[in-house]
Computed example of a mutant assay.
Amino acid sequence: MTTIPATSNTSGTQSTTSNNSTDSSTLNYDDFLQLMVAQLRNQDPLNPTDSTEYMSQIAQFSSVEQGINTNSKLDQLLVNSNISQASTMVGLTLTSADGSTSGIVTSVRIDSSGSTAILNNGKEIPITQGVTLGYQ
C-alpha cells in the first residue's frame, strides 16, 4: 500500500476528524478520501501532484478494501461451517489426538482460537487434527 506523507496545514490550525469505525488503527474508504482531499488542498501550487498518482492510490486502496471485505466474508463462512459441524458432534464419543482423554461430547465452544469440545466428564479438548469421533 502506498504511504501517504503527512501534510502541513498552512492556516496554523489543526483539523480533526472523527472515525466511526470500531478500530481506530484501520482506515476505511471515507478516511482515505479525506486524506486525499487534504493532500490536494495542501499541495505545492508550483509543483502539483500528478493526477495519475492519485488514481493509482485510489485503485490500490480499493483493491485492499475488497480483499479485506472478502476475508471478512470468508471468516463468517468458516464460523458458519464450524457451527454446522459442531451440531453433528454432540452425543458422539471424542478421543484426543494423543488418546489420553475420551468422553461424550455434550457441547462445542467456538471462539477466535478455534473449536473446543466439552465432554460429559467436564474435560475440554481442542478440536484439532488427530482427534477422533465415533459412536459409543
Rank of each mutant, 00 (worst) to 15 (best):
S11H: 13
S56H: 10
L33D: 02
T88R: 06
G99P: 07
M1T: 12
T116A: 05
T10A: 15
V105M: 04
I110P: 00
Q34R: 09
S15I: 09
S87L: 05
E53T: 15
S112P: 01
I104G: 03
F61V: 03
N19T: 02
L133C: 09
S84M: 03
G103V: 12
N82C: 02
T22P: 01
S112W: 02
N69T: 03
T132P: 06
T2P: 04
D23L: 03
T2Q: 09
Y54V: 12
S24N: 00
E65V: 00
D50M: 07
D98A: 12
G67T: 04
D111T: 05
M89R: 08
L33G: 01
T116P: 05
L40S: 03
R41Q: 11
L35G: 03
R41L: 11
S81Y: 06
S100T: 15
S18Y: 04
I4R: 07
T70R: 08
L33C: 06
S8Y: 13
V108L: 08
D31I: 02
A117Y: 08
I4S: 05
S21V: 01
S8P: 13
I68C: 00
D50A: 14
P48T: 11
S84K: 00
N19E: 03
Q60D: 15
G99H: 09
S113F: 04
I68D: 02
M1Q: 07
G114C: 00
N42E: 15
L92V: 11
L94E: 11
M89S: 08
L92S: 15
S87E: 11
E53L: 15
T7F: 12
Q60K: 04
Q60W: 01
L40H: 01
S51N: 12
P45C: 06
S115P: 00
S56G: 14
S96R: 06
V79F: 03
N9I: 08
T10D: 14
V90W: 10
T128G: 04
Q43A: 08
T7E: 13
G122N: 15
P5C: 10
L119M: 12
D23S: 01
T95S: 10
V131N: 09
M55T: 14
L77M: 09
T17H: 10
S113L: 06
S102K: 06
T16Y: 14
T22N: 02
G67Q: 10
L133P: 06
D75L: 13
E124N: 15
S96M: 09
T93N: 14
L74C: 04
Q76L: 11
N9T: 12
L40F: 05
S18L: 05
Y29A: 01
